[in-house]
Nucleic acid binder design. Structure first.
Length: 497
RNA sequence: GCCGCCAUCGUCUAGCGGUUUAGGACAUCGCCCUCUCAAGGCGGAGAUCACGGGUUCAAAUCCCGUUGGCGGCGCCA
């Protein structure tokens, strides 16, 4: 049997971290098994689905490198959206299938076979039933009053102008089992369930119904999805049952939590994949981190190339417990991936990021060739692209911004002033502005004044950069050049003493 | 409320009855390297394996219960 899996997001918001991990696990599994990975947009929520969300999801998938293998030819629909993966096809959309009457066809089949029935109760009436049941400390359920309606009674309801939903007949006794790769066999009492809606009054299928129909239509072999769906699975099992279909293999992966143990949400900071892109994370790093959130190898390996993830991933080694998202570790990992980028390619990668994320204003006015040189030199400092400007912009500034802590720490030293004065004066006569030549100069100055090298190096650093951190002092001076170095030393004498 | 899932260092996890003084990674702390920062190297601290009962010669590992966390109980997905 060939492996066919799908990622089925609902387009009601951006692709978030949890969804991205679900997509990744599906993708990894498909690639490893040489199977098919399908993207299916579950847009049956008529009120909340938006095209912007679809666009954001597709963009996120592409950025993460999670390409899908199948889908309808792109022609009429959403030509504005760049929806294609590697071929000339987009994702599947449930509303498209709905327009073709697919779900309705199956629902009618179930009705004609007596496995489902039309229900004319209004949402208000059903709500009342639930409230009443709850008041009696019973499971809040629909009471099945439309189950045995005669043709005559239906006619009357319809004449009243009532719109019907279709409900599935669910046995009130017995149990139904879900076999899950990660959790083993989980049993549910049928008495917990009611005759749930499979087709809404609008004619649109509900989530549980559409999922099952599509998973079967698309011959999905393994359903890998979030834990939050485990409680829905018995409903879906009853649909498989009623239709006489065999259920796929299930794998419910655990949830991702915020630091406070609550389900990851906006208040925990960034949760959308695109926000991570904007923050200057590398997709390879996010993928690696997400893969490790709930899955691991026996030797606790941390860094994986994508091919390695594909070959080593396994559903059996996914843990059943929820994981807390740790931004610190992601950041560390991103730094690892930054340093994996070939030094000569880092500047272009940075500029590409700046363009794509609209961060161009931060690099405005920079001499690109010079900036590239600096970026390459400072490559080990960067953990995120977004912190690059803050780390190197002092090279391009017209005047130095002196950090108070830096001034306190080094310029307060009694010898600092004379060091800067002497440097400014002597450097005017000094022509070798190579890093080596400058180091020789500074060491010479230290010897001449009988000072430790630190007493010379540090004040100069602060005078020309305004801070105690930064690149190697002499490389920094070389790049800045004679004129700027002297100007900044003089600026410092005016401003800081 | 009912049902379900889960429970090992602060965090991600290894562990699948004896080889464990419970291993790795992030974070944290210290030392080294060093003109600063970063990177790197070395080392430390950090978990009576949620708690309580069993089963067993032997339990982090198996079973039951309690507690706690999370999820679900929609004409949302």
């Amino acid at each position: 049997m060939s492996v066919r899996v799908r990622f089925a997001p609902s387009p009601t918001g951006y692709l978030h971290i949890g969804g991205a991990r679900t997509a990744l696990y599906n993708w990894l599994f498909a690639r490893q098994k040489k199977g098919t990975f399908i993207l299916r947009i579950e847009d049956t929520d008529e009120a909340r689905s938006t095209d912007e969300s679809v666009g954001a999801i597709l963009e996120s998938m592409k950025w993460l490198g999670l390409d899908w293998d199948e889908g309808p030819e792109i022609q009429s629909r959403n030509t504005k959206l760049e929806t294609r993966s590697k071929g000339s096809f987009g994702p599947y959309f449930q509303m498209e299938a709905n327009e073709r009457g697919i779900y309705k066809k199956y629902a009618e089949k179930l009705v004609s076979e007596g496995r489902a029935y039309k229900c004319y109760c209004t949402p208000g009436e059903v709500d009342e039933m639930r409230k009443k049941a709850q008041a009696e400390k019973k499971v809040p359920k629909y009471d099945g009053r439309c189950r045995e309606l005669t043709a005559e009674q239906r006619k009357i309801k319809e004449a009243e102008g009532r719109k019907a939903v279709v409900r599935l007949k669910v046995p009130s006794e017995g149990k139904i089992a879900v076999d899950d790769v990660i959790r083993g066999r989980v049993e549910f009492d049928n008495s917990m369930l009611d005759d749930f809606v499979i087709i809404k009054a609008s004619g649109v299928p509900t989530y549980n119904f559409a999922v099952v129909i599509d998973d079967v239509r698309m011959k999905i072999s393994h359903v890998i999805r979030g834990d939050d769906h485990l409680s829905n699975t018995p409903k879906q099992m009853h649909i498989y049952d009623a239709l006489g279909w065999r259920a796929p293999v299930f794998a419910h992966i655990s949830m991702i939590l915020g630091a406070d143990g609550a389900r990851l949400s906006k208040r925990h900071g960034h949760t959308s994949v695109l926000e991570y892109k904007a923050d200057g994370y590398l997709p390879e790093a996010l993928v690696n981190y997400l893969a490790l959130l709930g899955w691991s190898t026996e030797d606790s390996q941390q860094l994986f190339g994508k091919d390695e993830l594909v070959s080593k991933f396994s559903l059996e080694r996914c843990v059943p417990n929820a994981a807390v998202f740790d931004p610190k570790k992601l950041e560390w990992m991103n730094g690892e991936y930054m340093r994996k980028i070939e030094p000569s390619k880092l500047p272009d990668a940075f500029y590409k990021w700046a363009e794509e994320t609209g961060s161009g204003d931060k690099v405005k006015g920079w001499d690109r060739a010079l900036a590239s040189k600096i970026i390459e030199m400072e490559r080990e400092k960067f953990r995120l692209f977004s912190e690059v400007p803050g780390l190197i912009d002092f090279f391009f500034a017209d005047s130095v911004e002196y950090k108070p802590e830096a001034v306190d720490k080094t310029l307060k030293a009694p010898t600092a002033k004379v060091v800067i004065e002497e440097s400014a004066k002597k450097l005017k006569e000094h022509d070798d502005f190579s890093a080596e030549g400058l180091e020789k100069f500074a060491r010479g100055l230290a010897a001449e004044k009988g000072l430790g090298t630190g007493k010379v190096f540090h004040p100069i650093r602060v005078a020309i950069s305004g801070k105690t951190t930064g690149p190697s002092l002499f490389h920094m001076m070389e790049i800045l050049g004679k004129d700027k170095v002297i100007a900044r030393l003089e600026e410092c004498l005016k401003k800081c003493f």
